[in-house]
């Protein structure tokens, strides 16, 4: 882990998952991976209502959010995100959400991302990687799994050669964003991506955040068609 993390206060985390065994497992694994001083668990919840209540009372830095949850309007994690819109921590930073699920089906991923989650990892992720992801999300950066990157390349037509003329275009990726996504899909960590493209990690993070923004705001047919079918828009 990088040195800057040592000086700062622990990241306050709320864990939302309806399986108690999984919640216990995540806490134990993170403690084992040396998260003691880096991450502090301040609350847990097992359904939508209690999750919203815990987040609003604890104002954590990061919420680890399961995609499928009982309660609410039946949309699990998306309902939690809707219920916590504009909730800020004591420091005035928005509460960030990292989605955590066994399912890597595109519908689930895109639903929580478009509802405001800053990243998506599957539950098979290792403890060290999860720790990195939590810190990244707490810093306001985005966390993409290889599969999410692959989905982005597909959905934006980047794999088929569609590229944006200007970076600001919401419905297509820029050439650089495409390169970054391709490397993430190949299993590269951010620092490996940076090294491969001769750019700084900060620049990689900027590109990924920009892709996340496009993923949330774009009205590309591939991203909106199924959402309309589920009355999410």
């Amino acid at each position: 882990m990088n040195s800057p993390a040592r000086g700062r206060p622990p990241i306050r985390v709320v864990l939302v998952d309806d399986h108690r065994m999984f919640r216990t497992g995540v806490r134990a694994e993170l403690a084992e991976a040396g998260a003691g001083g880096l991450v502090e668990f301040v609350g847990e919840a097992a359904d939508v209502e209690s999750a919203v209540a815990v987040v609003r009372s604890q104002l954590p830095d990061v919420v680890l959010l399961d995609v499928h949850l009982p309660g609410g309007l039946g949309q699990g994690g998306v309902d939690v995100l809707r219920g916590c819109v504009a909730v800020e921590t004591a420091a005035g930073v928005p509460v960030r959400f990292l989605a955590l699920s066994v399912s890597d089906a595109a519908e689930d991923v895109i639903a929580v991302i478009r509802a405001g989650a800053r990243g998506y990892v599957t539950k098979t992720i290792g403890a060290r990687d999860l720790l990195v992801a939590i810190r990244r999300v707490a810093d306001g950066d985005a966390v993409f799994s290889p599969r999410l990157a692959g989905f982005v390349l597909d959905a934006f037509g980047a794999a088929a050669g569609e590229l944006a003329e200007v970076d600001e275009e919401l419905d297509r990726l820029s050439a650089r964003e495409r390169e970054v996504m391709r490397l993430i899909a190949r299993g590269y960590q951010y620092k490996e991506v940076a090294k491969e493209l001769f750019i700084s990690i900060k620049t990689v993070e900027t590109h990924v955040s920009s892709v996340l923004r496009k993923l949330q705001l774009s009205s590309r047919h591939e991203l909106t068609a199924w959402a309309m079918g589920r009355k999410l828009i």
Binding site: P146, G150, L153, A159, A160, G161, R182, A185, R186, G187, Y188
Partner: peptide, 19 residues
């Protein structure tokens, strides 16, 4: 482990990576 593989099938050709 972890072994990661990425296959991109596009109009310009196919690229496959195994890492």
């Amino acid at each position: 482990a972890p072994v990661t593989a990425y296959v991109e099938i596009g109009p310009q050709g196919v690229e496959a990576f195994v890492r």
